[in-house]
Design a protein around this nucleic acid. Structure first.
Length: 421
DNA sequence: TCTGGGGTCCTAGGACCC
DNA sequence: TCTGGGGTCCTAGGACCC
């Protein structure tokens, strides 16, 4: 059994470059929602010492002097290119486990190593040619080792994008060259503790005894330990239905006005309802949180949160929005400046699992609402929110989010595709 | 002045029950 | 006033991931 981890290099930056080739070879970063901080870096910007998560204002002088190029995040574009990559991988892999927007494990059971390597090489060339993105592949008997192999494939051009850890000798060599904080599953909090007691490389860690690991790092630590030793212990997390869906944003400005906040929260709730319907899911509980600006120590802080159970699991926009606003009425306090809020839908079940409740007097109304929601979905495609509930001001959501360096919607808008091709 | 968003899993501790 | 022990369930918070 082999896992081949396919990972797009500097994904968001590479997506920008795919449609704007003059960005090749330059230091480029992509910003988070709201143009807040850096969430993707090209190799050139990494080499300049720019760290993940840096607030953009801290490198303002580099931007102003033209040494660093900035793009707002364009999730429509990234989502579209991701889908193209995944569909190519599905042509080659007997089983594909999509791990995130830019990563997937191809799972090969009973396929020879030579064949796995050949396929991986072909995948690298094909994605480069057909989607325009550079990808790397790491092959190994466990996912954690595949991650490490992938790291080598990215770091050393000699591998031409494909690196394989297939025997004991290579495994030990690779682990001895991997710092403990580069290991998947060992976070930035855990690594310093391990370093302090002399565990500096992945190999140091893998050679500890199981009880030693369990005592210090619990069951998750043991899982990583097993994987590093060649025993697969990480399952397919993506396969299961999502258990919560959250839509949250920071606001460009702080909000005090409850009417204003009502509009934003309605938007978030509406997006949650739409995501539920897209997945064929229903939520039983709706949660809401609001936060003041934690960086403003001069202002009073308030971080309320609460949730509400629905009588019947639902994915209706009106019901989810209604619940979120009801919670808001309960936790809103005047006099605070809110910087962030979010709606979470929880206790999710499959829509076809729902047994009609005899006590649900509103089932006819509910059916009608589902139809209304469906119509809203079909009209609201492509990010164009034309039809909304009365409470949701048209186009309002985009108003509150800063996005000053946005690339065009190359892959999803006709006008802009014509412009490119 | 400006500081992301969306997930999962595990654990400790409280509530409650017998 | 004393005040066991074990089980389950729930929740908050920590830690990790991209």
């Amino acid at each position: 059994m082999y896992f081949a981890l396919v990972d797009c290099n500097n994904f968001f930056v590479s997506c920008e470059r795919a449609f704007q080739p003059d960005l090749e070879g330059k230091a480029v970063v992509v910003l988070s929602n709201n143009d807040g901080c850096i969430v993707a870096r090209s190799n050139e910007s990494k080499a300049m010492g720019i760290k993940m998560g840096t607030p953009i204002f801290k490198v303002k002088n580099l931007v102003d002097s033209g040494k660093l190029i900035v793009r707002s995040s364009n999730y429509t574009l990234y989502g579209d290119l991701s889908a193209r990559v995944m569909s190519i991988l599905r042509e080659y892999a007997p089983e594909l486990q999509v791990y995130s927007i830019d990563e997937a494990f191809m799972v090969f059971d009973g396929v020879s190593l030579d064949k796995v390597i050949d396929i991986s090489k072909e995948v690298v060339l094909k994605i480069r040619k057909w989607v325009g993105l550079p990808v790397s592949v790491g092959i190994a008997p466990t996912k954690t080792l595949a991650k490490i192999a992938n790291h080598f494939a990215k770091k050393y051009p000699g591998y031409k994008g494909v690196c394989c850890i297939e025997n004991e000798e290579k495994r030990k060599k690779a682990l001895s060259l991997t710092p403990i904080d580069d290991v998947w599953g060992i976070g930035w909090r855990g690594a310093p503790k391990l370093m302090a007691i002399g565990v500096k490389t992945a190999l140091d860690f893998a050679e500890k005894r199981e009880e030693w690991v369990r005592k210090r790092m619990g069951v998750t630590g043991v899982r990583t330990w097993l994987e590093l030793r060649g025993t697969a212990a990480v399952g397919d997390e993506a396969k299961e239905r999502r258990q919560t869906i959250c839509t949250s944003r920071s606001f460009a400005d702080m909000i005090e006005d409850p009417d204003e906040l009502t509009l934003r929260i309605s938007d978030f709730a509406g997006i949650c309802a739409k995501k539920l319907r897209q997945e064929g899911s229903l939520a039983s509980t709706v949660g809401l949180f609001m936060q003041t600006n934690r960086f403003r120590e001069d202002l009073d802080q308030y971080y309320p949160q609460a949730s509400l159970s629905l009588d019947t699991p639902s994915s209706s926009t009106t019901e989810i929005v209604g619940a979120a606003l009801k919670i808001m009425k309960g936790i809103f306090r005047k006099g605070y400046k809110y910087k962030r809020a979010g709606v979470i839908v929880m206790d999710i079940i499959a829509a076809d699992e729902l047994q009609g409740s005899l006590f649900d007097e509103n089932s006819a109304l509910r059916e009608k609402e589902d139809k209304i929601s469906e119509i809203m979905d079909s009209v609201n495609g492509n990010g164009r929110n034309l039809l909304r509930l009365a409470v949701q001001r048209p186009g309002h959501y985009a108003d509150g989010i800063r996005s000053e360096h946005l690339s065009k919607r190359y892959s999803t808008s006709w006008d802009e595709m014509i412009e490119v091709h």
